[in-house]
């Protein structure tokens, strides 16, 4: 199948990573550890810890699906600055491929 060529070795998108990547996209410039955490809890009802999200973000950044920059601090953060994440075009493409794969597979599912 054609799309398999695009997925390079080591850039496979895990299930949780995909979720985080989607949230980063949704939050559109306001994505950092805690906002992602609350968003996931709100939208999916899943309980996750901060460190899992950090790990996922780190992997995504390594795969160049997200970029990050240092953002503002707040009192609740103990005066420490945020790291804000943004989805890259490669990230968006990876999400699209992932969605396409799924859709293709759904199309192959025999009807009821």
């Amino acid at each position: 199948m054609a799309f398999t060529n695009i997925i390079m070795k080591g850039t496979h998108l895990g299930e949780f990573e995909e979720l985080v990547l989607l949230i980063v996209g949704i939050l559109n410039g306001d994505a950092y550890g805690i906002s992602i955490l609350t968003e996931i809890e709100e939208k999916t009802g899943r309980k996750v810890t901060v460190s899992t999200i950090h790990t996922a973000l780190y992997r995504l950044e390594e795969k160049e699906y997200v970029t990050s920059q240092v953002g503002g601090a707040s009192k609740a953060r103990g005066g420490r600055s945020k790291r804000l994440y943004e989805i890259t075009s490669a990230g968006r493409q990876a999400l699209e491929i992932s969605r396409d794969v799924r859709e293709n597979l759904w199309n192959l599912m025999p009807g009821k």
């Binding site: 609350t38 901060v50 950090h54 953060r77 103990g78 420490r80 600055s81």
Partner: peptide, 16 residues
């Protein structure tokens, strides 16, 4: 490199 992000998020989480 990771310190601010992690500690900040942790603190915020604690506050939440």
């Amino acid at each position: 490199y990771f310190l601010d992000e992690i500690l900040g998020d942790l603190n915020e989480w604690y506050d939440l």
